[in-house]
Design a protein around this nucleic acid. Structure first.
Lengths: 140, 140
DNA sequence: GTTTATGCAAATTCTTTGCAATACT
DNA sequence: AGTATTGCAAAGAATTTGCATAAAC
């Protein structure tokens, strides 16, 4: 995906596509797994952590990226893989390995659509599985 | 539930039932919603936060309480309502209101048992719904 | 020239640990 | 006495904000 593609994706959600924001989005797209602010910062030599933070917060508000809380102590981010925005159907399950502390995307494990009590209006669903990943399991 | 009942529940899982631990457990039991370390600390005038933290960590390890990450920035805790320990079946969904920042237990919304790719060994499941709670929705 | 975004520094919050004092057996 | 628990203080880590500079329009 070219910078122009990213730029128009940002614009489409009302985010002015600055060089910084395109770079953050691109960096996030290159990640196989959801990454923390610190990890993104480590990948981006030029950028300031607070700037990245503000960018992520903005992208999050505008529904361009997801935030995942995996209990590792830091929020992890990933781009939305849906057409042009985040929807319930776009979301997938995640697996947190309690041994190596990595978080995997289980792209094929859909989010079960919940039956909620009346009055609750669901806009996002976090479905997080925890346990031991294949690599760590083999070493036991 | 009496202190003796709590004591035997702790003992049953290998936790020596000190006055402090019983108090923490009892405080947690009185909460309708999952609470953060800070919130527990505020409810317990006598206890030190680090002591509560260590107690919670211990209870967590021994499967006497659950930890919930709701994206509020702080881990929330709640007692296990299962017979004598935490099992997958014991767990239920939670709802985080993005307006009032409160987390509700949806006791009647069970955790869907996931179909995971081979090699992943699931021990815990966090199923967190986000959106707007009934009270906040009415005020919009 | 006005508005917006970024970088730097520092504050805030949450979590975690070291160590001495206390309580338990 | 010896072990385990608690309180206090402080360190560590993640997040968030204030403000001055720089960029965009």
């Amino acid at each position: 995906m070219t910078s122009e593609d990213i730029a128009s994706r940002l614009s489409g959600r009302g985010v002015k596509p600055t060089a910084m924001r395109i770079l953050v989005y691109k960096t996030l797209m290159d990640c196989v797994r959801p990454v923390s602010l610190r990890e993104i910062d480590d990948k981006m030599v030029t950028a300031e952590r607070s700037t990245i933070f503000r960018t992520l917060t903005l992208l999050l508000q505008q529904g361009l990226i997801h935030a995942i809380e995996d209990g590792s102590g830091a929020v992890r981010y990933e781009v939305c893989h849906g057409h042009d925005h985040c929807s319930l159907d776009d979301q997938h399950a995640h697996f947190f390995c309690t041994v190596c502390q990595r978080t995997f995307c289980l792209h094929d494990v859909g989010i079960p659509h919940p039956m909620v009590p009346g009055g609750f209006h669901v806009t996002q669903v976090n479905y997080l599985l925890k346990g031991i990943c294949p690599a760590c399991y083999r070493e036991m």
